[in-house]
């Protein structure tokens, strides 16, 4: 287990995602409106394409979410769980911001 620096925090646009390659794994990083950062697997398990980072970030009830850009299934940014298809989930990565840098644990 180790922390890998991915990019400077300002490189994350508010309410949008970017993809990162960490130790060979594709990670989708999201910065939500209050500044919090979340990290999920980038592979959309429903379409099989590595695109989750390109989805629209928003909320469902109190849950911060991203909608897959392919067929719009919504995922919980905190747990990786798909809210539209029970049983489907994507991996969640630990992420933190230190000294202005975003770091992901793999």
């Amino acid at each position: 287990m180790k922390w890998t620096v991915v990019c400077p925090y300002p490189r994350l646009e508010p309410e949008r995602g970017v993809a990162a390659l960490v130790d060979g794994a594709q990670v989708a990083l999201f910065r939500v409106y209050d500044g919090e950062v979340y990290a999920l697997g980038n592979l959309d398990p429903i379409s099989g394409a590595a695109v989750l980072s390109r989805g629209i970030v928003g909320s469902r009830g109190e849950v911060p979410t991203v909608a897959s850009p392919m067929h719009k299934q919504v995922f919980d940014l905190r747990s990786g769980e798909c809210l539209d298809q029970p049983g489907v989930r994507v991996p969640v990565y630990s992420v933190r911001v230190r000294e202005g840098l975003v770091e992901v644990m793999t």
């Binding site: 508010p14 309410e15 390109r54 629209i56 392919m70």
Partner: peptide, 21 residues
């Protein structure tokens, strides 16, 4: 500005997404 975050992936990349991303 903020408008970028509102766009669907197609408008966001000014191109149409295909099944393999």
């Amino acid at each position: 500005g903020e408008q970028a975050a509102l766009q669907d992936t197609n408008d966001h990349f000014l191109a149409n997404i295909q099944r393999n991303g």
